[in-house]
Simulated scan of single mutants.
Amino acid sequence: MRVEPTVPAEVLAAVRAPLESAGAERADAPLLQPLNLLLDLAGEAMRARLFVVQAEGGAESCLRPDFTVAIARQHIEGGRAAGLYWYEGAAFRSAAGSDRPEEFVQIGLEMFSPGGGAVEQADAEIAGLAWRSAVAGGRDDLSLALGDVALFGAFVDSLGLAEGLAARLRRVAGRPRLLWAELARTSSPTDATGGTLAGLLSGLDQAQAAALLEEVWALAGVEPVGGRGPAEIAARLVRKAEATNAPALTEAQAEAIRGFMAIDDTPAYAFARMRELAGPNDAALKAALAGWETRLLELSRAAPADRTRFTPALGHAFDYYDGITFEVRSAALGTERPVAVGGRYDGLLARLGGPADARAVGCMVRPWRAWTGGEA
């Protein structure tokens, strides 16, 4: 395993200081994390980037690829409505086709709050703290990229699509490969069943589909491997069939979405371009853009406006983000190696068993990348 070089203690302290001084309490997370949970949140494609561990006869686990899910689970189990936690420790994740370190240090902050009220100020506060922490490493070539998963949903709603199609687009907003596949469906004929087995399962509820899949396995003498249960596999096959049978985008609608995904400009120009591309049902989009005026005003106190760009399609490896997303980038390292990342992930808490209306936003900084003498 390739291990990231050690960062000088004074650099770690400088990067840590903005997050630690925010009034947060120290948190930690177990080194081993449940594999199936992370795959459900990030998609099966993430498996190749994780370090999987399994004792004989036991469930599959993986070395901690990130802290956010683990800290969120601990917060929910603690039964507190609000919480602010900072952490520091090693994470383990590979980058396909590269020689980057697979064990690296992260310093981060997670903020949890009860439902209700506006989120813009908290979003700006966390993004501002991520900027200050990244800048503390000494680099002078940093910029701040902003995005918003919720804006994509509002834009899709403006186009007046069938609800099933709109819901599917919103679901894959953070997964570029799946989104581009959906956009390509305007001109590519597909199998109307989504595959024989998927088509067979598509009319059944989850329990019935899982039972039928188990029966097929038994008849074929198949022993499932990899820790994925029949219910999970059946659900994926059903979604595949539903996606294939659902209405496709028109070419004009697909072109509007491609234009939206291509936006990368100053916030003012980015927002103007979104309004140009939007369909007639744009009330939700206008409301979402109005909230960004508050975020940008708050954020201007931490990050210089001339180093800020808006890229609405900005996403991360883990696709549980459902609001603001952001990255602090170094010109020397490029867009594939951000110095800091973060965003809002309210829906994750409900998926982990927390309150349906709970709020969550956080950030993570890579000290080795933030340090002017570090990654090059």
Results as ranks from 00 to 15, higher is better:
residue 2 R to K: 11
residue 19 L to Q: 04
residue 23 G to H: 09
residue 25 E to Y: 11
residue 26 R to K: 10
residue 26 R to L: 11
residue 35 L to A: 09
residue 38 L to N: 01
residue 55 A to P: 05
residue 60 E to V: 10
residue 61 S to F: 13
residue 63 L to Y: 06
residue 64 R to D: 06
residue 71 I to E: 00
residue 72 A to W: 00
residue 72 A to F: 01
residue 74 Q to D: 12
residue 81 A to V: 05
residue 85 Y to W: 13
residue 94 S to P: 05
residue 96 A to K: 12
residue 99 D to F: 12
residue 103 E to R: 15
residue 108 G to K: 04
residue 129 L to Q: 02
residue 129 L to D: 01
residue 130 A to Y: 01
residue 133 S to L: 04
residue 135 V to F: 07
residue 138 G to I: 06
residue 147 G to I: 02
residue 155 F to C: 13
residue 159 L to R: 02
residue 160 G to S: 13
residue 162 A to I: 09
residue 166 A to F: 03
residue 168 R to A: 02
residue 169 L to Q: 02
residue 176 P to F: 11
residue 186 T to F: 09
residue 192 A to R: 15
residue 209 A to T: 03
residue 214 E to F: 05
residue 214 E to C: 10
residue 222 V to N: 10
residue 224 P to I: 09
residue 229 G to R: 14
residue 234 A to W: 00
residue 237 L to I: 09
residue 243 A to R: 04
residue 260 F to P: 00
residue 266 T to R: 15
residue 267 P to K: 03
residue 275 R to N: 06
residue 289 L to E: 00
residue 301 R to M: 13
residue 314 L to S: 04
residue 317 A to G: 12
residue 318 F to E: 01
residue 327 E to K: 05
residue 339 V to M: 06
residue 344 R to F: 09
residue 345 Y to C: 04
residue 348 L to H: 04
residue 350 A to E: 13
residue 351 R to M: 14
residue 365 V to M: 09
residue 365 V to C: 08
